[in-house]
Design a protein around this nucleic acid. Structure first.
Lengths: 205, 205
DNA sequence: ACGAATAACCTATCATCGATAGCCTATCTT
DNA sequence: AAGATAGGCTATCGATGATAGGTTATTCGT
């Protein structure tokens, strides 16, 4: 069933190069415009200027393409948080600032954020393939940075287990606001900026 | 473009009766077993014992069937929260219990919850048509009950505007946990039950 | 009681989707 | 120049949601 993953056993080549990047860029754009599962492989191919079956020379299937776009979205988030964490370590800002970075990232990159956290169906590959899910790995990295920041802020008065609870809870709370603002922009929200400030200050209170 | 919605202008009849209920019940069961978008109309029809095109005598399309299943799920949530709110008014329980009801519902009805609050791309129809999305409406009703409960709990020491801030923030926090647990079940979460308790107690602290 | 209306269902068929099979062509290496 | 290979093509598949049009059976007015 499962294919051996030796160096020459890949039935489908995974070339690297500009073409592949073009495809990923086009897919990201289309996913963002119309929603991931509303975009067909034919649309992606047309956007790049190749035929639909040609996609399968670069990606074994549609899921793999989606997964890679998602992974890159996470990497972008990770780099932002890394920068925020560095500022926090230098004492230039507090944890609330980091929360604000997180929320702002989600609102400024709705496509990437949606792909990262608002997937309709969790990737089944991540279960079958034995935990080698690159998307999950990328997400974990971003979360670990956030947890590190929380750990720095609350000091050493907390056991690691409790820190984990706290970090997961705070992450969920932040995500909730981003997620709802993105999913239901028409809801009669309070003034967005003030709501965000209010929420963040409560989350890290 | 838009069809006139007079009493006789419906192109597809929407009969009521036991058959229609059978279909909804079968769909609910299948959606729960395999996930909503992994179930085909042919499977639903087979479960009821009719042909696939026969479904379209009862529902104009697949989305309408999904929407009705989800709307009914949210009516269940509303009734649960209503009961919880009544208990709270009688002083039999606290607001945390209501939070728990909300979270539990989301986890037990992932498809309905996803459809209401985790849409990838908000349905443009629901914007144009003036917010007639029945699923969203059902979800909002639940929120309003929650807000009422928050108002009761914090007492009258809060201006309505501040209550709105608080309720929206708390709702977002609750939603965040539900949303992440649904979207990323493979994430190394702390023990689910304890995480939920921890999170809720923090949200309403 | 009888014929028409209608509810409920069928088969046959479509267009579209993701995916596969098999062939062609330009470029690069030796 | 010959061969290998990256990259692409057309043709086609099975599955899916949806439509068209005909058929049966129950209900209902006369």
């Amino acid at each position: 069933m499962l294919m051996k993953s030796g160096p020459e056993s890949a039935r489908k080549p995974r070339p690297v190069g500009p073409r592949r990047e073009e495809i990923l860029a086009a897919a990201l754009k289309l996913f963002g415009e119309h929603g991931m599962h509303a975009v067909t492989t034919r649309q992606i191919a047309a956007a790049v200027g190749i035929s639909q079956p040609s996609l399968y020379a670069f990606f074994p299937n549609r899921q793999a393409l989606e997964a890679e776009v998602c992974t890159r979205a996470f990497e972008e988030l990770t780099s932002r948080i890394t920068a925020g964490l560095a500022a926090l370590k230098r004492g230039n800002s507090g944890i609330c600032k980091l929360g604000r970075i997180y929320v702002d990232f989600g609102l400024e990159n709705p496509d990437a954020y949606r792909l990262a956290f608002m997937v309709e169906k969790p990737d089944p590959v991540s279960i079958v393939s034995g935990g080698e899910d690159p998307i999950l790995a990328a997400g974990l990295k971003a979360f670990h940075l956030l947890r590190e920041a929380v750990g720095l802020t609350v000091g050493s008065g907390l056991r690691p287990q409790e820190l984990e609870f706290l970090a997961q809870s705070q992450w969920a709370a932040l995500h909730g606001l981003v997620s709802l603002l993105l999913a239901r922009p028409n809801f009669p929200w309070r003034k967005r900026n003030r709501l965000i400030e209010f929420h963040i200050s409560r989350v890290f209170a």
